[in-house]
C-alpha cells in the first residue's frame, strides 16, 4: 500500500459540541456494536452503529491517535469516514481529575436516588447518572491505557 493512496482516506470525528478531529489517516479502528471494525482506504460503503469505547486511527505520519467515544454512528463512503459520536475526546486531552470528579458525583447522586434521600428541591434522573458514569469510566480507561 503506497503512501499516496493510503493518505486519501479521511477521518472526521464529530460530536454535538463540535468537530473533534479531521484529517488524513492510513487506517481507523471503530468500536462498532458488532465488534471492532478496521477501515482501510477504498473500503466499501458502510454504515455502522458504534458503542461506547475506543476509536483508534493511524495518521499519515504513522502515529496512533486514540479517542474515547460514546455511542454513535459511522459512515464510510468515498474514502471518507464520518463518525458521529454522542461524545468524543482525544486520549491526551482527557482531564483525568475531572473524570474522577464526575464519577464521584454520579455515584453520589445514584446513591441519593436509591436511598430516597434526594434533598428538597433537587431531582435525580438515574438514567442520566448511569450514562454519565458509563462515559466517565470509558474516558478513564482510554486516558490511562490509550494503546490497550
Amino acid at each position: 500500500m503506497d503512501q499516496e493512496e493510503s493518505s486519501q482516506l479521511r477521518l472526521e470525528v464529530v460530536a454535538p459540541a463540535g468537530r473533534v478531529f479531521e484529517g488524513g489517516v492510513q487506517m481507523a479502528v471503530l468500536p462498532a456494536v458488532t465488534g471492532e471494525l478496521g477501515i482501510l482506504p477504498r473500503h466499501a460503503p458502510l454504515v455502522a452503529q458504534l458503542s461506547i469505547g475506543r476509536l483508534r486511527a493511524l495518521t499519515v505520519d504513522g502515529d496512533w491517535l486514540t479517542f474515547a467515544v460514546a455511542e454513535g454512528f459511522a459512515k464510510v463512503q468515498f474514502n471518507k469516514i464520518i463518525v458521529l459520536a454522542d461524545a468524543a475526546e482525544e486520549a491526551s486531552q482527557i482531564d483525568v481529575a475531572r473524570v474522577h470528579k464526575s464519577i464521584e458525583q454520579a455515584k453520589q447522586r445514584l446513591e441519593m436516588h436509591r436511598s430516597g434521600a434526594v434533598p428538597e428541591g433537587e431531582d435525580v434522573d438515574p438514567y442520566r447518572e448511569q450514562l454519565a458514569l458509563r462515559r466517565a469510566y470509558n474516558r478513564l480507561k482510554v486516558a490511562e491505557r490509550p494503546d490497550k
Binding site: 454535538p16 462498532a32 456494536v33 458488532t34 471494525l37 466499501a44 460503503p45 458502510l46 454504515v47 455502522a48 452503529q49 454512528f73 463512503q77 468515498f78 458521529l84 454522542d86
Partner: peptide, 30 residues
Amino acid sequence: AQEHMDFLFEPDPETILADLLPSYVEITIY
C-alpha cells in the same frame, strides 16, 4: 448519495434507523 447507496450495515439498517431518530430528538433538545 442516492446513486451510491450500496451500503454495508452493521447491524441491520432498521436497527440503525430506530436509533438515529432518538438521536435527532436529542440534538433538537441540545
